[in-house]
Design a protein around this nucleic acid. Structure first.
Lengths: 191, 191, 191, 191
DNA sequence: ACTTCCGGGACTACCCGTTAAT
DNA sequence: ATTAACGGGTAGTCCCGGAAGT
């Protein structure tokens, strides 16, 4: 099956990434073998390596995709507290545990592999900037950029990462409480 | 001479753990082989296995030790903001990067291995309770336990974990700013 | 238009063989992958397999072609010592190293694969007979076949093979000296 | 089984080399997998890799050993023609075919891998010098070194390599005839 | 009709955690 | 208490068939 369409390739890639996502979050990055991924995707070894040159590259691709901790979709007019609530929900038990686990794995791997670290940093920076902008808007009429907004966004996002790790280890945390405390750092909603 | 032997054993164990700490933080848990550990410790294969029945057990021992993210030493009368500052400093670049990296690795592994998750949870719970108590004291004279204190402690600790991950990936975060924002969640110091 | 197509096919085949010759001599038979050949020829995988049913068949085709060790072109009236000199020059450094290397590779493979061994034997026999005939002519007027001629031809040709191997391994051999010694086995030139 | 004697290690090494020798000569260097060697030696994968860091290193070790083409044992007072006869017999059918095949393989590999080429050159040089010395002695009473001796030795040895390749490809060559022709290059025996 | 090139799946060299023999 | 060795596992490569586009 040659000369395959761009869409076909894209779909295939996504299929691999999603299968990898699932297996990685269950078994962990290191303990997942390429053979496991062959089983999970239903593809062959050569098939997978046609789309990803190495396991590391596949891991990076999974990390670049929505990994649960943070979300690539930026809803334009979302107030900061809703954004935080949404991000929180991605890694909240029970549905979010898989995401949380994968997130923890990826951060662990990123701590060791510079290539992954780049991906992680880029994701964090983008989301941080977005959140900072949302905070700025929510603060009021003036549109002066305040460096404090970025700092707050950094802290809030770091907290979400830590929250994800707690969820991943089976710690029983109440997302509502987390959200309530975190709200103290965000500007008050206009009534 | 059982006493000497006991001390000797303890020292040996610690020596292994410290060497493992160093190698793990540099190479990662999975990528560190037992042979690497043999090299790092200067001991023999069987020597290490005399103290730790498996690699997993050794990892758990390293995780139980002070890994930088959180600290086993509870200074009794420490005010909450100082405690937070101290914890923050453990994983701050440049000296704390190794700790941060190891921490990220351990959280990642804990997300996958129940045995390690138990260790991680226990560490977090103990530290959370300690911080909550410090917050309660700092709040004022009344010694009524407020569940809000525990929630705040959870959030602050989660933030520290996330902060560690950012440091581990080489993100350039300013600890002072982090601490300042985090301070807003803690009771104001009495002047 | 069968004639054009035929020529076209022939040209394509030759093009593949020449590219393969180059890559094989540099990387070795076994270490050269079909993908390498695709890269070297600029053709596609299937394109190559249209001309050669398998890698082994392609190797055989390369071996059948002039591989440098021996030469397919039989110059009719060539005196034996000139023929030997010419053959020697094919595998002499620096231009002949590639030929020498490929020759060594092919003899190695022929030692293992009967199909290739047939090719190698056929080539050797043909050249041996040719050289023997040249020797016989050079010996003098009488045209009696002397079995000794064939033996000498065998030995001289074997020497050339060994000479090629020495060149292929980077041994610094002087072709002039080789030729001089070898000349002692050949009939003296008429003055 | 720790702290094994030097002899034990040496014996083990030799055992591996000999098994490898056998399999290599039958299947070829490239087509012999490490698993084949595991089967042939009766050892385990890890066992073999304890003695040889890589397949290439094992190949080199096999090549360094007596590979049949040339012989490491230098019999001191051997006249040149006897030495040549002995070397010839090592790669003569039927017993010597395996040696001849392995020799062809090694020369082929040496043409590609510099490390092996070093080994091949060293072997050739040593044997060439020995043969040259034997020739010099056989030439007569005067002990003046003649560069011609080395050239003759080079040629004779090259011929033996080529002879081995012919044998390896199943060519029906008569060693006696080869030896007779080759004798013309060597000094006449005193009667 | 014909080339392209995706994909299959077996295989490769090498490594790893661990045990057991010395 | 050292270390040889086990044996299953790892990521990644290879040759090639055959389906999909032009």
């Amino acid at each position: 099956m040659p000369k395959v369409s761009q869409q076909y390739r894209e779909a295939r890639r996504t299929q691999i990434i999603e299968a990898a996502h699932k297996v990685f979050s269950r078994e962990g990055l290191a303990r997942t073998s390429m053979t496991d991924l062959v089983t999970a995707t239903g593809m062959s070894m050569g098939g997978i390596y046609r789309y990803f040159a190495s396991k590391e590259e596949l891991v990076a691709a999974v990390a670049e995709g929505r990994d649960g901790t943070v979300d690539g979709d930026f809803v334009a007019a979302e107030p900061p507290d809703e954004l935080v609530a949404r991000l929180l929900s991605y890694v909240t038990a029970p549905e979010g545990v898989a995401h949380a686990r994968l997130s923890a794995q990826i951060w662990g791997e990123a701590a060791i592999r510079p290539a992954l670290a780049d991906v992680a940093r880029a994701r964090h920076t983008a989301l941080r900037d977005h959140l900072a902008a949302r905070i700025q808007v929510a603060r009021g009429a003036d549109d002066t950029a305040d460096p404090d907004d970025a700092d707050v966004a950094d802290v809030v996002l770091a907290t979400l990462v830590g929250y994800g790790n707690l969820v991943a280890t089976g710690f029983d945390v109440d997302p509502a409480r987390f959200q309530r405390i975190l709200g103290r750092l965000l500007p008050a909603q206009p009534p």
